[in-house]
């Protein structure tokens, strides 16, 4: 059994090598890492909107101390210059402080965003002693919040994005990887040859799962180490690998099942799109934005994504029910894949 498993494992590695799977995974790893470290973090630190102030008396700028903070507010010399700046930068916010009551001037967008833009512009002009935009508010401030964990803002951003990209990689690329290998084998007809070999069918499925599982685990470990740092990764990696493993097995089985049930790669690409969208869009919307869908707690990928995120932030899932349900789901998927695999073997050449 062990010998046969090794034979299948070796063959699958060769198939993945010839399909350039590892090359694609490595390329993804490099792109994700560059994006997180040089793109996302800088983007998140960037100011939200440009704020232009027309303040002939200079009182508002002195009060906020903004004059000393280059780039946060831009002073303009006249009302005409303010209008010209806003017409060139339609997302910007203008403050006309020439009147006794300062007036917000901007191009209208959606109501909620406009309110946010106006508040942001005002926040840059109020006295620092009355307003805090610091990450750790002073005690007694009206805006104080409890700080959870010891992550710096940058580390938090890196972990968040690392989690999202790891999830996308496994849901989209890993799923595609196993399906493309199987479609190749289907096309070559060799799956049918395995039907008449002295080999347990479950071993064929298992070998493929292990290859993709190991590949995903290595990817997760490298992704975490490169983006969170080796020291930080050491603490969270075991829990992250558990969640990655669960997601990887589920996606590999889904990819396997689709490859067996669908006749060709063209049909698969449609199913792939539906599954990838179903698995990621509602999950990201609910987990990362204020949009909350009533049914999202029943979405299996939402639970797994939150498990992955929890693991990444040092609060792994410890509910036994979660792991029991995952195990049951994997068991059911395996049985379905086994049946589909058997059916495929009996098809005409």
């Amino acid at each position: 059994m062990k010998k046969l498993f090794c034979v299948l494992f070796k063959k699958d590695i060769r198939m993945m090598l010839s399909g350039k799977f590892f090359f694609i995974a490595f390329g993804s790893l490099v792109i994700y890492t560059l994006f997180i470290n040089f793109g996302y973090v800088n983007f998140m630190n960037d100011k939200l909107y440009n704020v232009y102030v027309y303040d002939p008396e200079g009182t508002r700028q002195e009060a906020s101390g903004a004059a000393g903070k280059a780039g946060e507010v831009k002073a303009v010399a006249s009302r005409e210059e303010l209008d010209a700046a806003l017409s060139a930068d339609t997302n910007g916010v203008g403050i006309d402080a020439s009147l006794s009551t300062p007036k917000i001037v901007m191009y209208a967008g959606s109501e909620k965003v406009d309110r946010h833009r106006a508040d942001y512009a005002r926040s840059l002009l109020v006295l620092r002693s009355r307003y805090s935009a610091q990450p750790y508010p002073r005690s007694g401030s009206r805006h104080s919040a409890r700080v959870v964990g010891t992550n710096t803002r940058e580390l938090k951003q890196k972990k968040e994005m690392c989690c999202e990209l790891l999830f996308i990689e496994i849901v989209a690329v890993g799923f595609l990887g196993i399906a493309s290998v199987l479609f190749k084998e289907k096309q070559m007809g060799v799956i049918r040859v395995h039907a008449i070999l002295p080999l347990k069918r479950s071993l064929f499925i298992l070998a493929k799962l292990v290859v993709f599982l190991l590949s995903d685990l290595v990817f997760a470990a490298l992704m975490t180490a490169l983006n969170v740092g080796i020291n930080g990764a050491g603490d969270i990696l075991p829990a992250m690998l558990v969640q990655t493993g669960i997601l990887s097995i589920i996606m590999a089985l889904t990819g396997f099942g689709c490859a067996m049930l669908l006749p060709d790669f063209r049909q698969f690409s449609l199913a792939y799109l539906v599954i990838a969208v179903f698995a990621s869009v509602p999950v990201f919307l609910s987990a990362n934005t204020s949009v909350k869908m009533a049914w999202i707690d029943w979405h299996p990928f939402y639970q797994i994504y939150m498990g992955l995120k929890g693991a990444c932030f040092g609060t792994p899932v410890i509910r036994p029910s979660y792991y029991i349900l995952c195990a049951c789901g994997i068991g059911l998927l395996f049985a379905a894949v086994w049946t589909a695999f058997r059916r495929e073997m009996g098809k005409e050449g």
Binding site: R14, M15, E185, M188, G189, V190, R192, V193, G349
Partner: peptide, 10 residues
Amino acid sequence: FEYPYLYANL
């Protein structure tokens, strides 16, 4: 089999 089913990359 009727068709020569083999791993084409090997």
